[in-house]
């Protein structure tokens, strides 16, 4: 059995930042493994540990810098990795959900996995749509926002909980091959061990161009164009209690007593 996990390197923004040229200036960005993908990797690795002959392959769309993130997924137990990137992808003006799903679909075609796990969303763009778009593209069944997964390898049925709003979960049975988008909290992602980090260095990490996966640059053309990025105007008019911590605490305490929520 083979599980493909999509892994994205996301940009995280520092508290103070500037926008230039339609995006956040590079010096205010830090890169990391997308939080939701961390849970997806863990879920796949746990399945591979519970069953014999399960291979976990990660698929990433990203520049060379992203290899650090991919190595982290390998250190946590994925067996090998595929990274799709070339000059055309690099120069795409807007890599939309459709284009990402198209690239990942090409990897799925090559790898022929039984199960695809993605994060529910990426923390930077928050589209929350790539997994389900991918499923429809490759003709897999799917379930979005999965926070519990029991896979019956024999029958190929995944029994999942989908986390709905308001503390309600939907129980659903999904026939594989399937794409499941994994919600945070489904498991406890492990930290990479030193041994894992060492082993990751020698695990295969293949770079594929569009041509390698049988696509041409047309797939990158998007009907969407990002025309502006700005900081939302602060709607806040909070009264700020200032001073040293004791003075601040004093003002908050006085407020709580005035409100009558705390006695004493």
């Amino acid at each position: 059995m083979k599980i493909l996990v999509t892994v994205k390197e996301v940009a995280e923004v520092e508290d103070e930042f500037e926008i230039s040229g339609g995006d956040i200036a590079e010096q205010y960005l830090e890169y990391d493994l997308n939080e939701w993908d961390d849970y997806a990797v863990e879920e796949a690795v746990q399945i591979s540990e519970e069953h014999d002959d399960v291979e976990v392959v990660t698929a990433t769309i990203g520049p060379e810098r992203a290899e650090e993130t991919v190595r982290m997924a390998l250190a946590k137990g994925a067996d090998r990795a595929v990274r799709v990137w070339d000059d055309d992808v690099e120069s795409a003006s807007y890599l939309d959900v459709e284009a990402k799903a198209e690239l990942l679909a090409a990897v799925v075609e090559e790898e022929d996995p039984d199960l695809v796990l993605t994060g529910v969303q990426a923390s930077d763009e928050s589209n929350g749509a790539t997994g389900v778009t991918l499923a429809e593209k490759i003709g897999f069944e799917w379930a979005a926002v999965v926070n519990q997964l029991d896979l019956d390898i024999e029958s190929g049925v995944a029994t999942v909980h989908r986390e709905l709003e308001g503390g309600v979960e939907e129980l659903t049975e999904v026939e594989s091959p399937a794409v499941l988008t994994i919600q945070s909290g489904i498991n406890e992602p492990r930290y990479a061990s030193l041994r894992g980090i060492r082993q990751a260095q020698s695990k295969p990490l293949d770079l594929k161009s569009l041509e390698d996966v049988g696509l041409d640059a047309d797939v990158l053309e998007s009907p969407l164009a990002q025309t502006d990025m700005y900081e939302p105007e602060s709607e806040g008019d909070a009264t700020v209690w200032s001073g040293d911590p004791e003075e601040e605490a004093d003002q908050l305490a006085e407020f709580l007593r005035d409100k009558g929520v705390v006695e004493g």
Binding site: V13, S123, D124, E231
Partner: peptide
């Protein structure tokens, strides 16, 4: 985007 730190406008062609 970026957890609500910025807003973007997107034109649909």
């Amino acid at each position: 985007q970026y957890g609500g730190k910025v807003e973007t406008t997107i034109d649909v062609a």
